[in-house]
């Protein structure tokens, strides 16, 4: 033990203060505000405390819980499509683009990334037009190659609408995993690849055995970003299908369900208290998912010093 006391390190607090203040004001405070809101109910302009009654209604009332589970299941499917299509596709495109022999790499990279920076309103509207059975180019294009029978009014069919929207979203955002993986692939030192070549590991097996393990942390980050993004999704469904998320709620995800509950829709008045309860559940779902990833996967992931 030393008798020498360390001076108080003021600078730590000062340096942290701006971020802590901003984060508290815009994230922590509203979060607790939402929690508080969800514990009250309003009727006849009177607000009263009801504890967890809103949550009981949300899960206990067959109509509320039916709508909630429908939205959750749809949301999970939305996420599954992204994980199965968007991320593998992103990795594949990045792997192809990182091949130094490929010409026009810069062009492909930009072209594939471009939709990411477009507004969801434009994307939703453009795809609605492309797939329109009346004026869309999709039916005509399929007809030109003799595949007209493949066309259906995808966005209007209960069985296809959600998958179609998920694929539109994949089209828009595939540039993000592509860019992240591309950067990770470029950071792999040439020596490692060459050492592999000396040992006889080339081509496809070099990708599987050397590159893929090295980019796994990046894939992990992409997965969690996809998860958070998908369970917060709202905009594309709202732009393409409206707040009722038709047909027959087939494209209703948690975001649109929250919107209708909180803000109301047409003749249905909004219920901020019930909406806050839905928002809390969404928060808990995302929190659980992130925790599972953080403690279950990321901490056990092997990292290689390059």
């Amino acid at each position: 033990m030393t008798s020498h006391r360390r001076p108080i390190r003021w600078h730590i607090g000062i340096f942290l203060a701006p971020a802590v203040l901003v984060y508290s004001a815009f994230m922590i405070f509203p979060l607790f505000g939402t929690l508080q809101l969800s514990l009250f109910t309003t009727s006849e302009q009177q607000t009263s405390f009801v504890g967890f009654d809103n949550f009981r209604v949300l899960f206990g009332d067959p109509r509320w819980s039916g709508a909630f589970w429908n939205a959750l299941v749809n949301n999970v499917w939305f996420f599954v499509i992204h994980m199965l299509v968007q991320n593998p596709l992103g990795i594949l495109i990045a792997a192809v683009l990182s091949n130094p022999k490929l010409r026009l790499r810069g062009f492909y990279r930009s072209a594939i990334f471009l939709p990411t920076i477009m507004s969801f309103v434009i994307v939703g509207f453009a795809w609605k037009l492309i797939l329109s059975p009346l004026w869309g180019i999709a039916p005509d294009m399929l007809k030109a190659v003799g595949l007209k029978f493949l066309f259906a009014p995808y966005l209007g069919k209960e069985e296809y609408a959600l998958t179609t929207l998920a694929l539109i979203s994949v089209w828009q955002y595939v540039g993000i995993p592509m860019m992240l993986i591309y950067a990770a692939l470029l950071s792999i030192p040439q020596e490692v690849i060459e050492a592999g070549e000396v040992e006889g590991v080339t081509g496809f097996s070099a990708f599987w055995k050397i590159k893929l393990p090295l980019i796994l942390p990046a894939i992990g980050i992409i997965s969690i970003l996809t998860f958070v993004g998908n369970f917060n999704a709202f905009d594309l469904v709202y732009a393409a299908q409206g707040a009722l998320a038709g047909p027959n709620y087939a494209t209703d995800i948690l975001g649109t369900f929250l919107y209708r509950t909180f803000f109301g829709f047409q003749m249905q008045l909004g219920d901020p208290n019930m909406g806050a309860a839905v928002a809390m559940i969404m928060f808990l779902i995302i929190l659980t998912g992130v925790c599972i990833y953080l403690f279950g996967i990321q901490m056990r992931m092997t990292r290689y010093q390059l």
Binding site: K128, L134, P153, G156, P247
Partner: peptide, 16 residues
């Protein structure tokens, strides 16, 4: 109703 009316929106119908 028209082909693919399932995905036909209100403005589509007006224009049609």
């Amino acid at each position: 109703m028209g082909d693919g009316y399932e995905a036909q929106s209100y403005p589509d119908s007006q224009n049609m």
